[in-house]
Write a protein that binds this DNA or RNA. Structure first.
Lengths: 192, 192, 192, 192
DNA sequence: CATGAATGAGGATTCATTCAT
DNA sequence: TATGAATGAATCCTCATTCAT
């Protein structure tokens, strides 16, 4: 009981750093983000960061993980819905809900992937895994809809999202995402 | 005749730099690319770069322009085709032809856009212009096909390309682009 | 006791840098002085300088402040003297005492002012403030002597000092300062 | 006659460079002025400068010479006046006439001297010579007035000018020069 | 564990000077 | 002579990473 104060005060500095990193890296990009930026955002002294993460790359990895866990949460929520069509459309709906963020900074996973793909760290494989998870989940839904081309459809859906995120961001226009979202929902319905 | 080699080398140092920049920036990303990298790729002494471009940003801008001119060339070639369907499918075919490059480095315009959108330079507006050109051209084709939803379709098409470029790059799998290319061609045919 | 050396060395790294900057900038001039020069003079690694001062200009500003504080100290000491005449003559006496330094590098404030006036930073306003302080103090003394033209006299006195500093420096002849000092003291006495 | 065209077109590129250098160096200071600045001001291609001056320092020297010749011209004009008092007061009057320039950039000779004294080139001796000329001339005038302390007075006069130039420049206030000019004229009259 | 401070390896940029024509 | 272009040595500044306490 005595330590509860301390425990409650810093409920995982490590986690706070990872969360802050996820946000700041999304907003500023990996290369333009300083360790100091992240430390500041997490309200952690710069020197202390290294107690939790040996290198900047490890912090980036933690940020990727955070995005991954976020995705897991989203998927878990979607799985409560009764039909695959509804699940897929709910996914699209979620994207549309985030359109303001996309207009400003693009898709968190997508922009991270684009940037990390320029490197030969394992980091690019890390982000690929997350993308894979989403892809697999979408594939399952299309399969549940009885489509034999489920993989292809899953790729098309995720690609459509990544692409419209990029355009939405490039033109700073959230409406692009909204319009494309409607189109994708109609498309899902048309697949029976 | 003997001096032609040397004589021919100078004429386009500025252009050589822009071309090299376009390539290297695509391959390595803007932030990770050093002026020295570009200078080396263009076989120009670092100090000399500044004779042609006052800042790194100006060199990036020149690289963007190079990509823009490349796009213009492509579009001009496409316009020789008789029907809008053929033109659009030829565009898609071109993307598929470039799938190996996309698998390695992603779409030149798209990755550049993703990275530059993190900045508040005019550079992000510059790349948006190029994307706009492509979008406008695609819209014209859909319009020529008699579609009233030409804008929406154009956005969907370009988004699909940008998205599949990202996935192709993320998974280092050119086949993704090929498959999606076929799907897009079928889709175009279905719109008549 | 053994570690006192090291312990004592840290306490004022920032101040050590400012002091070193004040000296080196006086000796070499602002433009000719490298950050490395100052770092070396303060026995601080170059990279570390930026922990204390974000830019070279901020370091220059700190040096100006150092000169300003030095002036305050001098003025405070002068104010202990009973009559304005004595105070003014003591000021002049101080100048004469520093004539060797003036012969080598000129008046610290004056040379700095001359150089910074070529710039449009706020730095030139910073040095003007210090000059103003000296001017105001001199004016008060002449006022205390009952002179209605106190401002004009103050300007004349400071100008005489700045001018003779320049000549002393130009001709590398400390005697110029000494002679002019005597003249100024006689002049002060003549004003009653 | 045939060469008159050419002769008239470029009446001494060398001289044009020296004049431009004198002006630009006064305005911007030696260190902050690039060769390109001077070349541009003289409307001479950069590469061509080196045909006339082997190094930047030689150009600075030429600028100093230009100021020296300017001084000679002024002195020559003053010498037309009948009495030493009138000559000295005319000198002071000239300073006052130039007060706007002094407020902006200080005294050409003085600021140059201040900057060059920081160097160990012969350049600082060069500027000292010019200052010497002025000093000698003033000394002669005081001598002609029958003063045995002519040297000391000459030094005081020139120092007063250099000092008030600095203050005028520091405070950007031409009036300072005007006021001090009046004071100096009264002072000259009082010496008889 | 915490933290302010230290360090040094780059990276962009400037500019005097040189060169080829 | 004239001139655009070339060159490389400096210089300022950033930042990941380490260290001492």
């Amino acid at each position: 009981m005595t330590d509860s104060t301390k425990v409650r005060q810093k409920p995982g500095k490590r986690e706070r750093l990872a969360t802050a990193a996820a946000r700041v890296l999304h907003e500023q990009g990996v290369e333009k983000t300083t360790l100091a930026d992240i430390a500041r955002a997490a309200d952690v002294p710069v020197g202390n960061v290294y107690y939790y993460f040996k290198t900047k790359d490890q912090l980036v990895e933690a940020a990727i993980d955070a995005h991954g866990q976020n995705l897991q949460t989203i998927i878990a929520a979607l799985d409560d819905l009764p039909t695959p069509q509804e699940r897929l459309k709910a996914l699209v709906g979620g994207w549309v809900d985030q359109r303001e963020l996309a207009a400003r900074y693009g898709c968190p996973t997508g922009t991270l992937a684009a940037e990390l793909d320029k490197r030969e760290d394992g980091l690019d494989r890390q982000i690929a895994k997350i993308m894979q998870v989403l892809l697999d989940w979408a594939e399952q839904q299309f399969q549940a809809m009885g489509r034999s081309d489920s993989r292809e459809l899953a790729v098309a859906l995720i690609a459509a999202y990544q692409g419209i995120s990029l355009l939405t961001n490039t033109f700073r226009d959230p409406e692009l995402m909204a319009t494309e979202g409607c189109r994708l929902e109609r498309w899902i319905d048309s697949l029976t």
